[in-house]
Design a protein around this nucleic acid. Structure first.
Lengths: 347, 347
DNA sequence: TTGTAAGCGTTATCAA
DNA sequence: TTGATAACGCTTACAA
C-alpha cells in the first residue's frame, strides 16, 4: 500500500506538503498542489486509517451495537442510520450481539448475560476510539447500557435507557394503539378484544393505555376481561382468540402481526369469516401482513424514520461539542395506520 | 483512555515489559506478570486499536461488503459470518452499499453505478488494512468485484465472481429445482407450470435446468410453453398464473415465494382451490410462506449455512498463508425442501 | 511557500 | 528477566 512518503518522493516535495495538499490547507503553491493531486489520483493513494486515527483525536467513526441484527425491525434501522451518518462523512462500525440467536431468549430474562456481552463490546468500541455509540434494542424495555461517567455521545434506540442521562428513541406506542383503536371504533366496533404482548412488556403496557384512552374518549366502558395476554407468538395469538370470541367481541386488536396471524388461524379453523364476522387489526406492518388473506390492517412501525431520527440526534451531539448528560430526551416516533381489508364497518 | 505507558508507570516497569506481559511472551518474571495483570484488570486497560494496527501487519479485521442489508437473505448471512469470524477472534467491518435503496434497481442494469459505489468501499477497507474481504451479493449473478492483482483473501457470496481467481459461494439452484420438481412428480403431477424469475437471471437459468432434468429423469416431455417469465414480484406471479391455468397445469413451480403469493392471489380470485385443484410450490422459504393459506411448500435457502461456509473458507485462506488466485472454487450450498400444505397428490 | 521534526500508542529488536 | 529504542504513517507546530 502506497504511503505519504512515497507520494512525496515521486513529487519531489516533502511529506508535509503532500499532507497539506490532501487536507486542503491554504499554504500550498498552485503548481505543487496540481502535481501532488495528479500523482495521488494516478497512484490511487488512500491515507492509512490507523495512522490517521492515531494522530487525530476524532476518528469520525460511530459504533452501532445491535442486540440482534435478525430481530424484526433492526436491519432497516441500522441501514437508515448508516446511510444518514455516511452522508455526513462518518463511518460506522457495527457490533451484532446476537442475543436472540445465542440464548433463544427474547425476554432476556438474564440481564447479566446481556451485560456480559455488552460491556466488552462497548470497551471494544472505545478502544477503536469511536466518536459516539448508538445502541439498538430488539424490543422496547428499560436497558442499562452506559455508565454515568460515559464521556462520548451515546443513545439507545428502540428501547429506554435506564440511565436518564442518555437520549432514547422509541416508537409512540400509546398514540399508535390509540389511533388504531379509534379507527376500529369509527368503523362501528364497541366491543374490541385485545391480544396483548407479554404482560410486563413496555410495548404492551403503553398500547393498553392508548387503547383505554380511545375507549374513554368515545365513552365506551373498559372491560378488563377483553384483554388477553399472549407472548408475541403465532400460537399465543391462536390461543387467546378463542377466549375473545367467546366473549363476543366484534373486533380484535392484536399487538403484533404474528399474533394476528394466529388469530386468523383460529378464526379460519372455526369457519368465522375475518372482516365479515370479526374484524382484526395487527401491529408492526410486518411483511407478512400484506400476505394474509384478507390483507391485514395494521400499524406501521416506521423503521427508516427511527433510524434517521436517531442518526440526526447523534449527529447533533457529535457536531455541537457534546457535554455528557446534557439535554437527555425521549423521542417518540409515530406509527402509521396501514388500512387493508381485515376490518369491516358494522352498526 | 489509559495507555501502556501509564500502566508501566503505575507498575514501575518499562512499557516493553507490560507489552510482553499482555501478549503472553515468556520473558516476563512471574511476580512482575502478576502485578501488571492486576493493574490492567483494575484500570480496565484496552490496547489502542489504531496503534496496534499500525504496528502489526495483520489487523485481524475482515471487511464485509453487502450489496444491500435489507435484501432478502442478506442479514442472516452477515450475522452467521460475523458469528463464525468472531469465534476465531477476528473482528468485522460491515459496509452496506444499499444499492437497492439507492437505485430501486434490483436488476442493477447499470454495472457502472455498482462499481462507482463498490470501488471506493474496497479502497476504504484496504485503507483500514483488513485481512480479507467478503462480498455479499443481493442475488446471484456474475459480478466484477476484485481486480486480478488483489493481494488479500477475497470471496463473493450469493453471486459469482467474474474473475475466476476468486472463490464464490452460491446456492445449488439446479439441485434445488430438481428436488422440488421431483417432489411434485412424486405426488403425481406431470403437467407442471413454471413461474420463472427474470429471463437473464442466473437463478432462473439454473432452476430451469434442474426442472428440465427432473422431467427428463421421469421421462416427461418438456413443454417450453409451460415456462412463464416473471420479474420476482407478486404482481408478475399473479399475471403468469393466468396463462399457466389456461394451459391446464396441475401444479405450479414458482421460483420465489413472493410470486407464489401472486399465484395464490389469482387462484383465490378465480375460485380455484390451492392444493385441491392446483398445487403450488415456491422457493426461498421466505417468512411469508408459512403464513399463506394453505401454507406454502417451498425450498429453503439455508442462509446460515451459506454464511458459515463462507466464513470457513475465508478463515482457511486467512490462516494458511494465502497465495492470490490459488485454489479458487465455487461452493454450492444445497437447499432444503420444506413440505407444508400446498401440494396434493393426484393420480 | 516549503520543509523539519515531534509525537500519537503500540510491537519488535537488541542490548544490558 | 528487563529496558531502551526504532519503527509504523500520519498531522501539525514551527522553522526556514
Amino acid at each position: 500500500m502506497i504511503t505519504l512518503k512515497e507520494i512525496a518522493q515521486m513529487c519531489g516535495v516533502s511529506i508535509s506538503t503532500v499532507s497539506n495538499t490532501i487536507n486542503g490547507k491554504p499554504n500550498v503553491g498552485e503548481e505543487t498542489r496540481r502535481k501532488v493531486l495528479e500523482v495521488i489520483e494516478r497512484t490511487g493513494y488512500k491515507p492509512n486509517y490507523f495512522a490517521q486515527g492515531m494522530r487525530k483525536q476524532k476518528t469520525r467513526i460511530v459504533g452501532i451495537i445491535a442486540e440482534d441484527l435478525t430481530a424484526f425491525g433492526t436491519t432497516p434501522i441500522v441501514s437508515a442510520i448508516m446511510a444518514c451518518l455516511e452522508g455526513h462523512n462518518y463511518r460506522t462500525v457495527l457490533i451484532n450481539l446476537r442475543i436472540y440467536d445465542k440464548w433463544q431468549d427474547t425476554g432476556h430474562s438474564s440481564e447479566q448475560k446481556l451485560q456480559s456481552s455488552l460491556q466488552p463490546s462497548i470497551k471494544e468500541l472505545l478502544s477503536i476510539k469511536v466518536d459516539g455509540i448508538v445502541y439498538i434494542a430488539g424490543h422496547c424495555r428499560v436497558i442499562n447500557c452506559f455508565p454515568d461517567d460515559f464521556r462520548i455521545p451515546a443513545i439507545v434506540v428502540y428501547g429506554l435507557s435506564k440511565n436518564p442521562r442518555f437520549t432514547s428513541v422509541i416508537i409512540d406506542d400509546k398514540k399508535g394503539a390509540y389511533d388504531i383503536t379509534k379507527y376500529l371504533i369509527s368503523m362501528g366496533h364497541r366491543r374490541i378484544g385485545v391480544i396483548a404482548g407479554a404482560v410486563d412488556n413496555l410495548h404492551t403496557m403503553n398500547r393498553i393505555i392508548g387503547y383505554q384512552q380511545a375507549l374513554f374518549d368515545e365513552k365506551i366502558l373498559f372491560n378488563p376481561d377483553l384483554i388477553r395476554y399472549g407472548d408475541w407468538t403465532r400460537a399465543s395469538g391462536y390461543n387467546e382468540t378463542g377466549h375473545l370470541v367467546n366473549m363476543g367481541v366484534t373486533a380484535i386488536f392484536s399487538m403484533n402481526d404474528v399474533m394476528a396471524a394466529g388469530a386468523y388461524d383460529y378464526l379460519h379453523e372455526k369457519g368465522i369469516r375475518i372482516a365479515d364476522d370479526i374484524s382484526v387489526v395487527g401491529y408492526d406492518n410486518n411483511e407478512i401482513s400484506a400476505y394474509l388473506r384478507p390483507a391485514l390492517t395494521t400499524n406501521q412501525i416506521q423503521l427508516k424514520e427511527i433510524g434517521e431520527e436517531s442518526a440526526k440526534i447523534m449527529l447533533e451531539m457529535l457536531e455541537n461539542n457534546y457535554t455528557p448528560g446534557k439535554n437527555p430526551d425521549i423521542t417518540e416516533i409515530p406509527c402509521q395506520l396501514v388500512i387493508r381489508e381485515s376490518v369491516k364497518r358494522i352498526n
